[in-house]
Design a protein around this nucleic acid. Sequence first.
RNA 1: GCGGAUGUGGUGAAAUUGGUAUACACGCCAGACUUAGGAUCUGGUGCUUUACGGCGUGGAGGUUCGAGUCCUCUCAUCCGCACCA
Length: 819
Amino acid sequence: MSYSPKEIENKWQTKWSEQEAFEPKDDKSLKKKYILSMFPFPSGRLHMGHVRNYSIGDAMARYYRKQNYNVLHPIGWDAFGMPAENAAIKHGRHPKDWTYSNIAYMRKELKTLGLSFSETREFATCDELYTKWEQEFIIKMFEEKLLYRESTTVNWCEECHTVLANEQVEEGCCWRCDNEVELKEMPGYYLDIRKYADELLEDLKLLEGKWPSQVLAMQSNWIGKSQGLEFAFKLSDASKEKLGNKFEGFEVFTTRPDTIYGVTYTALAPEHPIVKELIKNELLDAEVIEKITAISNMTEVERAKAGKEGFDLGIMVIHPLTNEEIPVWMANFVLASYGGGAVMSVPTHDERDFEFATQYNLPLKYVISGDLESEASAPNKAYTGEGTLINSQEFNGMKNSEAKAKIIEEFEEKNLGKGTTNYKLRNWGISRQRYWGAPIPFVHCESCGLVPEKVENLPIALPEDVEITGEGNPLENHPTWSTCACPKCGSDAKRETDTLDTFVQSSWYQFRYATDPKKWNECGIDKDDVNYWLGVDQYIGGIEHAILHLLYARFFTKALRDVGFIEDLKEPFENLLTQGMVLMDGAKMSKSKGNTVDPDALIEKYGADTARLFTLFAAPPQKELEWNDSAVEGAFRFIKKLYDRRSKVGSNELPSIDHASLSKEEKLARAKVYEALQKSVDVYEKTFAFNTLIAACMEALNALDKQENEQVWTEGLYIITHLLEPIIPHVCTELSEELFASKNLAGKIAILEEVFVQDSITLGVAVNGKRRAEIEVDAGASKEEIIAMAKESIAKWLEGKNVVKEILVPNKMVNLVVK
RNA sequence: GCGGAUGUGGUGAAAUUGGUAUACACGCCAGACUUAGGAUCUGGUGCUUUACGGCGUGGAGGUUCGAGUCCUCUCAUCCGCACCA
């Protein structure tokens, strides 16, 4: 009978499901592995990226299951989010209906891939039961002051009609729709991720060697820790008066306290309260006010593109050490969101300050001498290197690296300022003005203010009777939903209509999977279960989540720990593999480019095993995968060949073979088989270079084909189907059942060292490091014999020369150094 | 600019501690079987040279008996961040 993937795959998928073959066991004394692929958004259909992601995870899960580990390998649905609402607008379908029917379809698709997921632990994040527990966490975080509501400038996407977190803005545009993001002042809920900035940064060290260095670097940059001096500039008396005595001065932050004597002006962001006050009281020219207002309405990206622009604000501050009066400017490059929105400017030693000072003719004062001569001759740029302090009173002559600490000390002693740490990371804005999300469980009461909902009333579920038009927030527009009683005083109140960012759901799903589904009604996260299963031993997903999801989930883990929902756990994802993209003609597969391959069609034509084999064979998982139709054919051919060779098997046991009595070809075949077996441990547990393991199995099969010994064939297929079962499970399980009564799929197979002993060995012979010949020597040949043979083989290279050194690399080569 | 990676045949890619560069596969070429084949099987396939040989892992140096692998410099490409004071 020829290879019929459909028949075999149906048979085993049905069996696995009936036998509940992939459910983790309750016994916590077993050694465990938690293998997690990032869960999909139920967009409607699987794409090749999913196939790749889940093929990688499934290979690992099946490997460890076979090694008798208790394996948790779950799947679920990241089900809230904008596309559901867009579908509603476009096709008039309710987001809930759209989402759950997509899930039903994609669940079937996953099944046809033969993935070994737990079926009892599946959930969708839009399930009300999931929302319920998430709302409880949110309320607890509010009570513990990790969550707050405030009105501030936010990133607004008009297209998506919602606020975006800082992480969700890419080059000034919305991460989802690419629309340009606007700035808008509005209230919203924030999680205090900044409180964890240092811990998030420090704990990256725990992940070194376990996460890709690129992801670690990206997170570290994103957190953006810098150390320096924070101090206040006091306004001059005249300036203070000008501002109606409302301000004493303003705080600035610098990482270069060593250049403090070089300050020749200061600059404020257009949003700075002092600038606002000047505008409010019309203390600036009408034209200037107009221009500053225009800058305030620009996004950061627009400001950066526009070039430097600034205005003298007509006020002065006092230098804290020299007591000189220094002018205050507004500058468009000063960020309101960092370092208090104000800077001290040292044009001689900071490139931006230099550019600005040159543009507006502001004075320069050198305070660090690096290379004095070139400075004098070409003061056309800032000197940002190391050097010695000059023009800096008692600090003159000090190395600038040393002066940093000394000057901070000076400020601290005189009570003028203090050493401090700043982060680029901003707090996580989690409000979304959209319908298809988890409602934020708070109530606005006129007398009590912001009040969290009572936990016993959770979940606060979404109303189903909504009109989704794309205009405004459907919850806001709902006639009755937001009307409620205040949980505290009982008077009429209004329910919060913002919903939670979908990244909140994906920040704790790894704990939900770990929680025994029998407890899902009683708690969101079970501590004991989490203690047993977490951290995730291997997490697999796309690099695009390097900052967003992976940073949020790390933070949420620490926050959940601190508010008491999980016990001591530093990091949720112990090891991370970021898989490469699937490409077609060098470009990422995408519907809009029309260069996609439909997994359903692929499976229909070749079967799931071929799809999986190609995916894992064509490139190592970390690299990009270039699609190639004829290579898919090649994968199919290999499986057919493997299936066809089952007629060579003579018994259902691993035979015991008298190795010494075998022919050369038979010995070689055995060696190839065992080489693959030897390689498999490293591949499955460390390198994940499945492509090399598959290649080794192909080599083994090629070698087996060159001999006819039935015992060698039996042993070979016993081991090859054992090795490939995690990758092409259907055909291997089928062969294993038919040929070996499934014995080769339980436990380990021992490596027999004897098979690596060959009758003869082929050695390369090099002269002065250049390969010149090849010799075949007896396995037991002595060094002298080998060298003698080597010399003979390259006799023509030795004419008239002397061998000065003989190097024998056992089993590899001989190198003769001649003169 | 800062940070992270990657450069090996026509293509995807291999290569323990430095030890026969190009395994495995795709493609291509030739042959076999076929009425036929875009099916299957077998063999060949780094470049160059009539040959002996020479040259080959982005480039230039270095260490070494020996370098894809280690060191220094350099070029190119990709990705992320980007006026963060």
